[in-house]
């Protein structure tokens, strides 16, 4: 009996050790590329081309960063922030308005319209690239930042999850407020919105991640120098300076820094955001 117990304990300890070993191997695989990028960004051209490879640069020199900063990256940063703010704000405002109506007001064709929206969730956006581009052309949006923003301001996903949040508000709350003379609009703006803050934050995170990182649509609709965003910039300099790896890495570090910093600070909210979209109910 005692022998068995002892065996069990050993087995459990070995299992735990194995678990940590596997997880740490995973951490190694996940982190090495990032570390390698950061180290390389401080290297000179010749240091980066040494064989066998050398992990640390001889000195942490900033010349790659200086060069990238002299390449107008300020403008690309500004453009990226601009589109991210407006896409996120647009998705949240437009989505929450529609979500409120769908969740809390009875009106003709409500279910049919909502069903139509849900069907659209299944349409891959790649399918509509060409007509969407033509549409932007007709609206005079090609090669403007609004061309990136406008088609991306309408999110069915955001509407769907905000509707769920608004549905969960007790209807007595709204009845009581309405009897006290609170208008629909005031209820939406001063009660429903603040009470659904966590869903709004989650959806805001997802929207801004998408806006900041997307490549395909900005490449198509606005890739000239004045409307360039960071992702397009990276793709472009990769084409121009294919071999200047340290330079490319410095650009990469600068482009992902804000999102990674935000993620590390607010990781709890990021994880919650992802988890909400994965839960079907």
């Amino acid at each position: 009996m005692e022998q068995m117990l002892k065996n069990g304990i050993w087995k459990r300890k070995a299992g735990k050790l194995l678990t940590y070993a596997c997880l740490l191997l995973g951490v190694y695989v996940m982190l090495v590329p990032f570390i390698w990028m950061v180290f390389t960004s401080f290297k000179t051209f010749s240091e980066a081309m040494r064989v066998p490879i050398q992990w640390l640069p001889d000195t942490f020199n900033l010349q790659n960063y200086q060069k990238i900063l002299s390449m107008n990256i300020g403008r690309y940063y500004k453009n990226t922030i601009f589109i991210t703010v407006f896409i996120t704000a647009g998705q949240l405002l437009i989505g929450s308005m529609a979500a409120y109506a769908f969740a809390r007001i009875r009106f003709p064709f409500r279910n049919a319209l909502f069903g139509l929206l849900l069907c659209m969730l299944m349409i891959p956006s790649q399918m509509t690239l060409i007509p969407k581009y033509a549409m932007c052309g007709r609206l005079g949006l090609v090669d403007t930042l609004w061309g990136i923003i406008t088609p991306n301001m309408f999110s069915v996903t955001v509407t769907f999850f905000l509707r769920q949040a608004f549905l969960s508000l007790p209807s007595e709350l709204e009845d009581a407020a309405r009897i006290d003379g609170c208008s629909r609009f005031r209820f939406y703006w001063e009660i429903a919105i603040p009470l659904s803050k966590s869903t709004l934050v989650s959806m805001g995170i997802l929207a801004s991640l998408y806006a900041w990182n997307d490549l395909l649509w900005p490449t198509i609709v606005a890739s000239s120098d004045k409307t360039r965003v960071l992702s397009v910039f990276i793709a472009a300099i990769k084409g121009e300076h294919n071999n200047k790896l340290p330079l490319l890495m410095a650009a990469g570090v600068l482009s992902v820094l804000p999102m990674i910093a935000g993620f590390i600070v607010g990781q709890k909210h990021f994880v919650a955001a992802i988890a909400t979209t994965g839960i079907k109910e």
């Binding site: 996940m30 590329p33 990032f34 990182n213 490549l215 890495m249 990469g252 482009s255």
Partner: peptide
Amino acid sequence: VIYFLPNVTMSVVVALIWTL
């Protein structure tokens, strides 16, 4: 957090890192 890191990194940069 560590496993999730690539998901907040723009895929353009992910590709860049891996070309390296």
